[in-house]
Design a protein around this nucleic acid. Structure first.
Lengths: 229, 229, 229, 229
DNA sequence: CATGAATGAGTCTTCATTCAT
DNA sequence: CATGAATGAAGACTCATTCAT
C-alpha cells in the first residue's frame, strides 16, 4: 500500500468518524504515520482530499448502478437492484458512504458542483426506475420524488449501524431492504391510516406551534435536494 | 424574544446548516447580533449549548410520542402515529431535528450519555410497536431491529429536503410516509427479489473486493446504534 | 461587617492564595457574595484595591513597629521587638503579609511608589537597630544590609506555614525567632565554616557554570531591594 | 543556543520577573524571538513549561546537595554546606530559584505533585542535618521544623536582591549566611528576650485583635509546608 | 444600592499550510 | 521523499470594566 493510499484511507476513516471539520490535519498525519508536512506530498488541500474521496466513491456507485441495471427492463427488478447495490455498498464501505452522505456541505460551492452532478446522475437512475414503475402500473407511489428520497435515506442508514461481525450475510441484508422497498411501493392502500389529525394536534401542542388548517410542505422536489445537502 | 432565545435559535440554524464543528463562536455571535463575549452571558460552553438543544428537542419528541400513542392498543395505529409524529416534527423543525440526528458525535462521552438515553427511550417506543405488531401477526418484518432503523432513517430524511413552501400539507406528507411504512411492514413476500447474486458480483467488481461466500453483516442490534451515532 | 469589608477581606484572602494575577474579578465577586458589577461600588480598579491593601498593612506594621521601639535605647531590645512584632503580625495576618511580601511587582510603577516608601521606612527601623548594635559593639554582623535582609526574609516565611491550630503560642513563636536573630547577630566566630571551596565546585559542576576566582556578588545594598521586589 | 533553549530562558526570566500568571504567551514569544504559534514547537502548555523548569531546577539542587553532603558526618559541616550551596545557587540563578520558590501554587494539583516530592526530598536533607545536630548536642534549636523553615526562607531571600555586580564574592556571601545559620543554631540562650508581652499588646492594638492569653501557633510541622506553598 | 447586559481586548491554544533543508 | 521549523489566522473562552436600569 502506498503512502497516498494510507492518507486516503486515514481520511476516509476519520472524516466518517469525526466529520471533516472535526478532523485536523494532524489527526490525518498521525493516522497515516506521516508528518503533517509530508501529508502534502500526497494530497492537495484538505478540501481537495475530501472532494476526491466523494467523487471517487460516487463514481463507483454510479458505475456499479449502471452495470447492475443496464438492459433490465422490469422497473421492479431495476429498483430492486438499485436498492441492493446501495445497501451492499453502504454495508461494505460504511466510512466512504457516510462521508458522501454527510460531508457535502463542508465543500465550497465550487467543489460541490461536480459532486452534486454525480449524485444527481445516480439519483436519476432511481427516479427513472420509480417513474417507469408508476407508468407501467407496477408501482403505486404517491409523490415519486418523496418516494425516491424516502427510500434513499432508508438505505443510507445502513452505513451507520453496520458491523462486519454478525450472522446476516450481505445478500440477506440487501434482500431485507429490497423487500421493504418493494412492498412499500407495490401494495397501495394496505393498512389503516393513523389518526393524523390527533398527531397534528400533539405536534402543535408539544412544539407550541399554531395548528394551521393547511400547513404546506414541499412536494415540488424533482431533481434532488438543496445545495449542500 | 430574549437574547438567550436569539442565541439558541442562531445555534440551531447554524449547527444544522454548517455542523457543530463548522460553526464558529463568531458565527453564532453574528447571527445572534451579539459580540462573541456577550454570547457567554446566555450560554455555557459551545458544547453545552449543543447538548441543551439536543436534549430539549428529544424531550419534546419523546413527550409527543408518548401522548400520541398512550392508550393505543393496535400496533399498526401506534406505529403509524409514531411515523406521522416523527415526520411532522422533522418537517416542522428541520433544523433542530437535523442537529439531533447528525451532531451526536460532536459531544464528549459525558455529554452524550443523557442524550443517548433519551434517544434510546424514544426508539424503544418504535421497537415495542414493531415487536407487538409482529407478535400479533399484523406485521411480517424480517429482523425487527433492522426494520426499526430503516424506518427511522427513512423518516429522518424529511428534515433534509423540507421546505415550508409547497402544496403538500403536513398531514399529506405524514400520510405518505405512514403509508410507506405500513405497506413495507404488512405485506410480506410481495414483489420479486432482485438478482442479488449479480448485484453482489457488481459490488465486488467495482470496489475490487473479494466476494466471500458469507460476508457477514450484523443483525444483532437490539437497543440502538453504537455510541456517537 | 460592611460590603466594603467583605470585598477587602475576599481580596486579601484570594490575592494571598492565588496571587493578584491569578485572581479574577469574578473570583472576588463570588467570595464577597456580590455581583462583579456591584464590586465596583466598593473599590476602584483591581490594582487600586491591591495598592490599598498593601498600604494599609504596611502602615499598621510601621505604626506597630514605631510604638514597640520608641524610647528603647538598647539596640538588642529594639531589634528583638522588631523581630517579635514582625513574626507576630505575619502569624496573625498571614494573608495580608503574604500579599505585601509577594505582590509588589503586580503594581504599576506609579502605584508601587508609595508602597515602596512605606516599606523602606519600615526597614529603616531594622537598619538603624542593626547599625546601632554594631556601633555599640553588641552585634558583630558582617555586612549590615545583608543581615537585615536575611533576618527579614527569615521572618517573612512565618506567613507561609502558619496555622492557628497548634500548641505554640504567638509569644513562643516570637521568642523562638527573636532567639534565632539574637544569636545570629551576637556571637561571632562560633562554629566552623563549611568547605566553601568544595561547595563552589559542586555548584559549578551541577549548573555547568565556570568557576571564576572572584564571582562577585552585590553587597552594595543599603536602602532596600530593587523596584518591584 | 537552540530555540527551545531560548524559550526556556525567556520563560525563566519572565516568570521570575512578572510571575507565571503575569506572563503572557505573547511575552514569552517576543522574548524568545518567535511567533506565539511557533512557541508550541518547543513546549507543551504554558503550565508544562513551568513544571519542567521547576523540576529541573530542583533536581539540580537536590543533586548538588547530595554531592556536597554525602559522606560528611559532622552535622554542623553538613548544614553549613547546605546553606552555602543554597545561597550560591540562589545567587547564581536568581530567576530559576525565584520561580521555584514562588510559583508552585500556579501549578494544578497534578502538576504540583512531582515538584513537591522533589522539594520535600531536598528539605529532608536539611531536616536530617538539623536533627542530627540536635541529637549530638552541637545544635540547640527549639522546634527543629521551625528552625529549618526559618533558615530556608532566610536563604531564599538571596535571589531577590542578588546582583552580579558588587564586591562580594559568592564565597563571601555563602560564608556570611553560613555564619548566621551556625550561630543561630549553636549558642543557645545568648541575648536578652525582647519584651514579648508588650509587643503582643502593640500587635493587638494595631490590628484590633483580641489579646487572648494563649493564642496558639502551630508547631506541629514536620515534613514541610502545606501544598501549594 | 445593586445588577444584568454588554464588550473590546485579551487569554491560551490549534488551525491548515508553506518552505528550506 | 521527508520533515522540522515556522506562522498568520482562527479556535473557544475570559478579562476587567462600564452603564443603563
Amino acid at each position: 500500500m502506498t503512502s497516498a493510499d494510507r492518507v486516503r484511507r486515514a481520511a476516509i476513516r476519520l472524516f466518517a468518524e469525526k466529520g471533516f471539520h472535526g478532523t485536523g490535519i494532524r489527526d490525518l498525519a498521525q493516522a497515516a504515520n506521516l508528518s503533517s508536512a509530508s501529508l502534502y506530498h500526497y494530497m492537495g488541500t484538505k478540501e481537495e482530499l475530501l472532494a476526491g474521496i466523494m467523487r471517487e466513491c460516487l463514481e463507483r456507485l454510479l458505475e456499479g448502478a449502471g452495470k447492475a441495471t443496464e438492459g433490465v427492463t422490469d422497473p421492479r427488478e431495476r429498483l430492486g437492484r438499485l436498492v441492493a447495490l446501495h445497501v451492499m455498498s453502504h454495508a461494505l464501505r460504511p466510512d466512504e458512504t457516510r462521508v458522501v452522505d454527510n460531508e457535502l456541505r463542508a465543500l465550497s460551492p465550487a467543489a460541490q458542483e461536480p459532486v452534486v452532478r454525480l449524485r444527481d446522475a445516480y439519483e436519476q437512475l432511481w427516479a427513472t426506475a420509480i417513474a417507469d414503475g408508476i407508468a407501467s402500473g407496477v408501482f403505486s407511489a404517491g409523490e415519486p420524488s418523496i418516494t425516491r428520497l424516502a427510500l434513499l435515506e432508508m438505505c443510507n442508514g445502513v452505513s451507520r449501524w453496520y458491523s462486519p461481525r454478525g450472522p446476516l450475510t450481505l445478500e440477506s441484508l440487501a434482500a431485507e431492504y429490497a423487500g421493504l422497498a418493494m412492498r412499500a411501493l407495490m401494495s397501495a392502500g394496505k393498512g389503516p391510516d393513523p389518526d393524523l389529525r390527533y398527531c397534528r394536534a400533539v405536534v402543535a401542542d408539544v412544539w407550541n406551534t399554531p395548528n394551521p388548517h393547511a400547513a404546506p410542505c414541499s412536494d415540488g422536489i424533482t431533481g434532488g435536494r438543496s445545495k449542500g445537502d
